[in-house]
Design a protein around this nucleic acid. Structure first.
Lengths: 244, 244
DNA sequence: TAGGTACTAATTGTCAACAATATGCAATGT
DNA sequence: ACATTGCATATTGTTGACAATTAGTACCTA
């Protein structure tokens, strides 16, 4: 009886096309556009236009924008509209100040709670990163670094911490890093720091792991701040808005 | 000419009835219902019913629910629906673990950055709390305590920290406290702790202020955890779900 | 020319209907 | 009695139209 098509069978032919909601489909795309700067930082977002761009109506679009606001990539004002988050030095410092506190916490917790399996994954990621370093695969560097911090946060075991960092801060951090990356040889040093952090975690030395993470993040902040100031100086010079 | 009614003139007759959005009007009411338990923790929320209750349509209702999800008071699952957050001991510990880290950070920053005016407000609030203690005004105690922490968070000067704590965690904390408050004489002790924290901030002693805040919050956690366990034991005893 | 004012256009907020999905229940067969 | 199937109901996801508000523009006045 019945080799007939049940709804589940269809999944063989159209694999990951589950009954996903429109918002979920579109959210990542808009997110990426913002992080890469295709939707420029600080620019206005038109609901209608955005909806048409992805072939959906304004309802799901509004929901997506609200989710992006939760991720701090978008700022919405009633009756006025939505804007892409602006990148400023002041916010960068606030953001990294908070990030540092939270990831140090995550790192300390991870040193106490990480499982053997999670630790193995971390080692493997580290090796892949070190390998990619020789290949000069800069794209993998970006994603790999995100993954590194991501895995440690997961290993902390604190749900609210994970939600705060990954759901709330991480995408904005990605945006700063994507748009303020200079092609120095920071990766070499960064990955060396990664190794020492993993070693500390493996030795269950929470205090050391936290300390190393704090320094690691501070390095990243300085790097980003410097580049951001350069960029802003350039754009200000290019737009001499008032000739007094 | 024309003393005729311009839109602005109407505001004289209906004072603070600005053109506020429906979501803003309803959000606080639903929030309060959840925190007070009128919408029971863990219960399902029906969009249609909720919309009718406040005389609005499902559109704004959905937006309000999404905002409540950001505040962790509601959990939404696609195609399934929204539920009021469940109160569990495990989450309470995760929540307080994170809260402690963040408010210690806020306290340390406040000790460094607080203005004279903000400090005066803090002293005044403290005096009002101590006065209310003698009157036994327990409602003011609740709100006063919220205000105390709120003001310190504001004084930290870090926008992202404020958003994370006030926009993300605080309402869920209020829910735990409202529903897990025992009428012990904790307030007396709590306000004594408040005083010492303010003194440390006034002396610009960030380290001490942070330490005192950490202990203060840990006290609150223990208190709430104890009460929560009592409540859950009661409700489980009342519902002997399986008689094996 | 500067500043303010009525008008128009563009944009956001809200609603009600429709489509897609999940839930509950009765009937059926083993 | 138990699990499974199929249908009817209830709930959520999505859409397009309409209302309310803001932004832009031309015009007028001092």
């Amino acid at each position: 009886m019945g080799q007939a098509l049940s709804p589940q069978d269809l999944s063989e032919f159209t694999p990951q096309e589950k009954s996903i909601t429109l918002v979920e489909q579109v959210l990542v795309q808009i997110q990426t556009s913002i992080i890469k700067g295709e939707l420029p930082a600080g620019s206005k977002i038109n609901e209608q236009a955005l909806a048409e761009k992805y072939g959906i109506s304004r309802g799901p679009t509004r929901e997506a924008l609200q989710l992006l606001e939760r991720q701090r990539l978008v700022v919405r004002v009633p009756h006025i509209g939505a804007r892409v988050a602006a990148l400023t030095v002041e916010e960068l410092n606030d953001l990294y100040e908070l990030r540092s506190t939270l990831e140090v916490m995550a790192c300390e917790l991870a040193a106490k709670r990480i499982t053997e399996e999670q630790l193995n994954n971390l080692w493997q990621l580290l090796e892949r990163q070190e390998a990619a370093l020789n290949d000069g695969d800069s794209y993998f560097q970006q994603e790999g670094d995100v993954d590194f911090h991501y895995q440690i946060i997961r290993a902390s075991g604190n749900r609210h911490l994970q939600e705060t960092l990954i759901g709330g801060l991480y995408h904005l951090l990605r945006m700063y890093r994507y748009q303020c990356t200079n092609n120095s040889r920071r990766p070499v040093r960064a990955i060396a720091e990664h190794r020492r952090i993993v070693e500390a975690i493996a030795q269950r030395d929470a205090e050391l792991a936290g300390l190393l993470m704090r320094r690691h993040i501070e390095q990243g902040r300085q790097n980003t701040e410097q580049r951001l100031k350069q960029l802003q100086a350039q754009t200000l010079a290019a737009k001499p808005q008032n000739v007094c």
